[in-house]
Design a protein around this nucleic acid. Structure first.
Length: 562
RNA sequence: UGGGGCGUAGCCAAGUGGUAAGGCAUCGGGUUUUGAUCCCGUGUACCGCAGGUUCGAAUCCUGCCGCCCCAGCCA
C-alpha cells in the first residue's frame, strides 16, 4: 500500500483492519445492475473499489446485480465490462452475477423461514403499503405474519414451483413493523415474477430483492468491505440483520460514501433517457453525455477520469464538483501526450500579394513544444492561406495581439505578415485580407530579428483538408440541473455547434479516437464512429484555457460600468 | 412532526485537543513563435450558529440552525 496515496476515511478503515489483523486480504466489489450505461458517478465507485483492491494487493469482483429480470439486459452487461476495462481495471476471474448465487440465496431464505424470522405474506402490494405506516406512524402487522413455519415453508416452496401468480405472495423478513427505520418494517425478500431471466432463463419464477441478494452475494464472495453510496445508509441495519441471523463464514462490512455530482450535468437514468427520447442528444454515447461511453467518444482519456475522481475525494459530504476540475484533468493529460496540429475552425482567406503564385514552401513544425521526441512535420505554405476569423479585428483594442489593418502578426512556424487591405463583399462583410509577408522572417532560418506580439495559426488554402468539426459544450445552463423543476427547461441550446473547418494536410492521417491539440484552440479527436479519411468528423474534447477571453470579458464589464 | 447522515475559503479536501495542508478556481507577475504549457507570488476560512469543558477546542459536551436520504413486490 502506497504511503503517498490519499487517505480517505474508507482507506483508513481498511488500513486499520489490515493492521489489526482483522483481515489478511481485502476483497471489494463493483456491483452494477445491468439496466443501463455507466456514468461519471460510477467512475468514482469503480476507482474506489478496484483502487482499494490494487493498493492492498487484494481482490475486486465485477458483480452484476441482476435480480430484477425484465429491466436488465446482456447488452448492458457487455457495455459495462467494456467501460470498466477501458477505465483501466481488470477483474481477472472475478466476474460474477447475483444470479450465480440464486440457489444459495434461496437456501438462505428457507433457513430464515425455518428460523421463524421470515414469512410468506399474502397481502397485495397496495395492502402492504397501507400496513407499512408512514415516516411518523408505526406500521401494522400483516394478518399473515404469524403463519407457522411449516405453512410458510410449504407456501414458499410452492411459490418457487410456480403455483402462484405474480403478486399473490411475497416472502418477508419478520423484524419490526414499528421500527423508525422503514427498511426494517418487514422488508420483502422474494417476489414472484413469471418472467425469463437473461441468464437463468425460466429456472426461477421468484427472485430475491436487492437487500437480501446483495448481502448474501457479498458474504458468499468473501467481500470484506462493501462500499456503496449514502442512500443505502438506512439499509445497513438490514444488511447486518441478515448477517446476524445467518452468521455466514465471512462477514462483510458495509461502508457508505457520498456520490460524486458534476456541475452542469445529470446522471439520473430516467432523465438521461429523456434526453435521448426527446432528440436532445443522439444516444447513450453522444459526446455530450456524462456516460462513460459518451466521455470516451468525446475523447476524455481514461487517466483523466481517474485523476478527476481522485481529486474529488471520498467523503460523506454531498458534493457538486465544478466542471473546471474535470476539464483541468483532461487538459493536463492531453497537454503532455497529444501532438500539436493546426486547424482553422472559421476560415478567413488571406492572400499574400508578394508571394509567388505557384510557390510552395514546406515549413517545419514541432509536434510538441515541450517534447522534441515527438518530432516534427512539414506544413505546406503558399500564397493563399486560411486564418481564423477571430484572429482578425478591424477595430482592435490596444491589447489585441492578432491581425488588424496595417498590423503585423507571426504565422506560427511561418512568416511574419502585415495586413495591407481588407476586402469586403456586397453585404459589407470582410471576406479576404490582402497581406504581404516579410521574407526575412521565415521561422527558424529568418535573418530578421523582428519581433511581433502575436502568433496565429493557419492552413494553406491549396493544401487544406475539409472536415466537419463538432464543438461541444455543457448540456445545461444551470450548475445543478437537478434542482430545477423542469430540467429540460435549462438545456444549453448551444451544446453542439458543427463547423466546416480546414485542417493542415498532416491531419489526413488522423485515426479514429486519436486525440491532437489544434494549436491555440483546444484538444480534438477523430470521432470513433463517424470519422473517415475521406469525410473527417472531429470532436472537440475541450478548449484550451483562454486568457484572452477573460480579458475580453473584463473589458466588457468595465465598459458596461462606465 | 419519526429515523439516518452531512456542515472547514467560490468548488473539492486534509485535519482525530496544541494554535487551520493541498488541489481546482480567482487575482497579480515572469518565460514563451500556442494570449497554451511552465514558473513565481496571491486567501482577515468568525472551521454552520450559540453556549460549555480545558492552560489550550475545527477537534470533547449541550442546545440550535441549514442541507441530503428513507414510506418499491427497483437497485
Amino acid at each position: 500500500m502506497s504511503d503517498v496515496a490519499p487517505r480517505d476515511f474508507i482507506r483508513q478503515i481498511i488500513h486499520e483492519d489490515l493492521e489489526s489483523g482483522k483481515h489478511d486480504e481485502i476483497v471489494t466489489r463493483f456491483p452494477p445492475e445491468p439496466n443501463g450505461y455507466l456514468h461519471v458517478g460510477h467512475v468514482m465507485s469503480i476507482c474506489l473499489n478496484f483502487g482499494v483492491g490494487q493498493e492492498t494487493n487484494g481482490r475486486t469482483f465485477l458483480r452484476f446485480d441482476d435480480t430484477n429480470p425484465g429491466k436488465e439486459r446482456e447488452e448492458y452487461v457487455r457495455a459495462i465490462e467494456y467501460d470498466v476495462h477501458w477505465l483501466g481495471f481488470d477483474w481477472g476471474e472475478r466476474l460474477t452475477h447475483a444470479s450465480d448465487y440464486f440457489d444459495q440465496i434461496y437456501s438462505a431464505a428457507e433457513k430464515l423461514v425455518e428460523m421463524g424470522v421470515a414469512y410468506v405474506d399474502s397481502l397485495s402490494a397496495d395492502e402492504i403499503r397501507e400496513h407499512r405506516g408512514t415516516l411518523t406512524e408505526a406500521g401494522r402487522n400483516s394478518p399473515y405474519r404469524e403463519r407457522s413455519v411449516d405453512e410458510n415453508l410449504d407456501l414458499f416452496r410452492r411459490m418457487r414451483k410456480g403455483e402462484f401468480a405474480d403478486g399473490e405472495h411475497v416472502l418477508r423478513a419478520k423484524i419490526d413493523m414499528a421500527s423508525p427505520n422503514m427498511n426494517l418494517r418487514d422488508p420483502a425478500l422474494y417476489r414472484i415474477r413469471h418472467i425469463d431471466h437473461q441468464r437463468t432463463a425460466d429456472k426461477w419464477c421468484i427472485y430475491p430483492m436487492y437487500d437480501f441478494a446483495h448481502t448474501m452475494s457479498d458474504a458468499f464472495e468473501g467481500i470484506t468491505h462493501s462500499l456503496c453510496t449514502l442512500e443505502f445508509e438506512d439499509h445497513r441495519p438490514l444488511y447486518d440483520w441478515f448477517l446476524d441471523q445467518l452468521n455466514p463464514p465471512h462477514r462483510p462490512r458495509q461502508i457508505e460514501f457520498s456520490r460524486l455530482n458534476l456541475a452542469y450535468t445529470i446522471t439520473s437514468k430516467r432523465k438521461l433517457n429523456m434526453l435521448i427520447d426527446n432528440g436532445v442528444v443522439a444516444g447513450w454515447d453522444d459526446p455530450r453525455m456524462p456516460t462513460i461511453a459518451g466521455m470516451r467518444r468525446r475523447g476524455y482519456p481514461a487517466a483523466a477520469l481517474r485523476e478527476f475522481v481522485r481529486r474529488g475525494g471520498v467523503t460523506k459530504k454531498d458534493k457538486l464538483i465544478e466542471m473546471g476540475v474535470l476539464e483541468n484533468c483532461i487538459r493536463e493529460q492531453l497537454g503532455e501526450s497529444a501532438e500539436r496540429r493546426m486547424g482553422v475552425l472559421r476560415p478567413l482567406k488571406v492572400v499574400l500579394t508578394n508571394y509567388p503564385e505557384d510557390k510552395v514552401e514546406m515549413m517545419q513544425a514541432m509536434n510538441h513544444p515541450n517534447n522534441a521526441d515527438l518530432g516534427t512535420r512539414e506544413m505546406p505554405f503558399s500564397r493563399e492561406l486560411w486564418i481564423e476569423q477571430d484572429d482578425f479585428l478591424e477595430e482592435a483594442p490596444r491589447k489585441f495581439f492578432r491581425l488588424k489593418p496595417g498590423g503585423e502578426v507571426r504565422l506560427r512556424f511561418g512568416y511574419i505578415i502585415r495586413c495591407d487591405e481588407v476586402v469586403r463583399n456586397a453585404a459589407g462583410d470582410v471576406v479576404e485580407l490582402r497581406c504581404s509577408y516579410d521574407p526575412d522572417t521565415r521561422s527558424g532560418t529568418g535573418s530578421s530579428d523582428k519581433k511581433v506580439k502575436g502568433t496565429i495559426h493557419w492552413v494553406s488554402a491549396t493544401h487544406g483538408v475539409r472536415a466537419s468539426v463538432r464543438l461541444y459544450d455543457r448540456l445545461f445552463t444551470e450548475p445543478d440541473p437537478n434542482s430545477v423543476e423542469d430540467f429540460l427547461s435549462v438545456l444549453n441550446p448551444d451544446s453542439l455547434e458543427t463547423v466546416d473547418a480546414i485542417l493542415e494536410p498532416a491531419l489526413r492521417d488522423l485515426q479514429q479516437s486519436q486525440a491532437v491539440q489544434f494549436e491555440r484552440l483546444g484538444y480534438f479527436c477523430a470521432d470513433s464512429a463517424e470519422h473517415t479519411a475521406d469525410a473527417p468528423v472531429i470532436n472537440r474534447i475541450v478548449t484550451l484555457r483562454d486568457s484572452w477571453a477573460k480579458i475580453e470579458r473584463q473589458a466588457m464589464s468595465s465598459s458596461a460600468l462606465s
